[in-house]
Design a binder for these strands. Structure first.
Lengths: 197, 197, 197, 197
DNA sequence: AATGAATGAGCGTTCATTCAT
DNA sequence: CATGAATGAACGCTCATTCAT
């Protein structure tokens, strides 16, 4: 949404890193300030409150994710290929910025505050809806099997992606997420593709 | 594991309820004490520290889950039916005790502390391993398709279950988890069953 | 109203002394704690918030003042003597506890918060109303002159008392409040007494 | 004293308004800057410190008040009429600029700092002394009764004025200060005038 | 088995002020 | 003349934990 100043961006990035490496409960103003090397008070020049920092983190991911989906949609004629690109792009995002994975799949972080919780919920809903739409179109084009509802296909696909990322995270990033994720996608693709007979 | 006194059980149950209804960050000794109606100091008669309470919560779920899987395994000859029962039992557990869902699928809660994180990780691993084993046997018996690795089947199945439960939670429990979950299972069953030809 | 524990009383007393000697802006939790010799956190065992301490200070004076007026009223047959006793009692209270004077005549202290401001306002109103009533009865008994409204007599009397106390305070308590105050009262008494002719 | 630039005047005026409408504790550099629409740092171009702003507020009132008394003295032959004009002028000042009333009768605001407290004290003393002098002369001219000391007459008169203004302020300016004040003065005038017999 | 009192450490936030631009 | 960025100090408050009773 609103463009961030470079200092704001630094605060957001640092915050994401802290959440990823130390957990949410270590995301304190003091900790952020120390990581950046400025005073605590200085943080408040750039964000009105801690919540505004969390909101900015969310907003940041929202943008990234929206972009990923948009790119996928615009550049591919086949709907199943659009899904594939969305799947791969998310694998890439998380591979490159593992901290983001920690934050995004941890909706619990944001559940304390109603404003934050709502923000997360609508973000997830929006993404989900867009994917369901792609699936629906894929079914109409007879690319994707029609004996399973679009919602279920979305749940299975995204659920597998999330769990895979989570396992990767919990294992201490001990395997190659992109490789394993792509293999997983191939399987899912096989499962949901309309049999040509 | 270790048997809990009735007071300890009360503390664990209350804690789970607090996490579910108010979020982790409201799980404070003061809050637990108030809910139960005893003093804060009294809590320390029953648990050495707050972490021990969290550990007990985990232990509690471990037991429940292990039981569910054991029952499933012992009572069914067909492996796909064992999977179904595990799936259904978890749906039932979460339907009846939504607070547990909030706690269990929020591994983030436990990420601060190494001891806790490890506990969660081994719990998940154990469950996962047991399910993978069932799938493997199902593949050997030619009940479950063999062109997909047992790990991927487990990832897809459990990922879908988790996401479905999460959606239910985030929607404010606005739909019937058991019904939707069972429909989802039917689809998954169809997807992973070996075609009889 | 509610009885205070001895610690609570200590906190209230200490707070009044701090306000009197250092000014309101030095009435901090840290300062109170240091004066008493306990930790800041300990204060919160006894009062839920700083505001509750201020409310208790107010409540404390309310009681003292109410008592003074009640005693005056009950023990005197003549209304002008009732007024005298109220006047003298307040002189005595402030002479003995100068800190109270600082607090009570500084309604501004309490103006930040609506709850506090209202509390002060009703306290003053109640006192004022009681004094006006006494004057009215004194007029009916032909003790007090009737060519001046009871409100104006109250304003003149209490205004003089307040200003005298304030001058004493601002002068650094350099004169004897009781002596000067009693002389002032004699004058006021002369001014408001009904001429016997 | 020293002439203020237009920006300085703006800062002083704004500060008085803030004190009046939001209370002293909201008189922050940030708040002043926001009200005017400039940066906080800009304030320091015009005043060396916050205390200097408070000092300027005081100086501002000193001037206004001194002027009022001077005008009263110079334009009236009768001493009781001089007192009347002083009384009326102050009623007018407060009626027109209620914020000033909040500030001036709140000596407590200035009690933190020795420099400020002293400034207030001398300001009040100066005014008081001037009024006492007028009364003394009135007594010598047999306009004002001589059986009461000039100090007491001053205390009674100014005390009544202050309390009336305070009541008006605390009531939320719910009555007409000028009307009530003039009625009050008539009564005081009656009380202190030398009986012609 | 339970409680009241206390504490050290920490947190989010505000404030007056400074300085380079 | 003005601003954006920064800071040290302080503040009200909460938390997990301890200890004497």
């Amino acid at each position: 949404m609103q463009t961030l100043t470079s200092r704001q961006e630094e605060i957001v990035t640092t915050s994401i890193e802290i959440i990823a490496s130390e957990g949410v409960q270590h995301l304190t103003i003091k900790n952020i300030a120390q990581h950046i090397g400025i005073s605590e008070a200085a943080i408040y020049r750039h964000f009105k409150s801690k919540m505004d920092i969390l909101l900015a983190i969310l907003s940041n991911f929202k943008e990234t994710s929206r972009e990923a989906i948009k790119t996928a949609v615009s550049g591919n004629s086949s709907y199943i290929d659009q899904m594939e690109l969305i799947f791969f792009t998310h694998l890439k995002i998380f591979s490159e910025t593992p901290s983001l994975a920690s934050v995004i799949f941890s909706e619990e972080i944001f559940q304390n505050d109603e404003r934050l919780a709502n923000e997360v919920y609508t973000l997830m809903q929006a993404n989900y809806t867009r994917i369901v739409e792609i699936i629906k179109k894929g079914q109409q084009q007879e690319e994707i099997r029609t004996d399973i509802s679009e919602e279920q296909i979305a749940t299975i696909t995204m659920g597998a992606l999330r769990l895979q990322v989570n396992k990767w995270k919990l294992s201490g990033f001990s395997f190659n997420l992109k490789d394993e994720g792509e293999k997983l996608w191939k399987t899912i693709r096989k499962l949901i593709t309309k049999k040509q007979d």
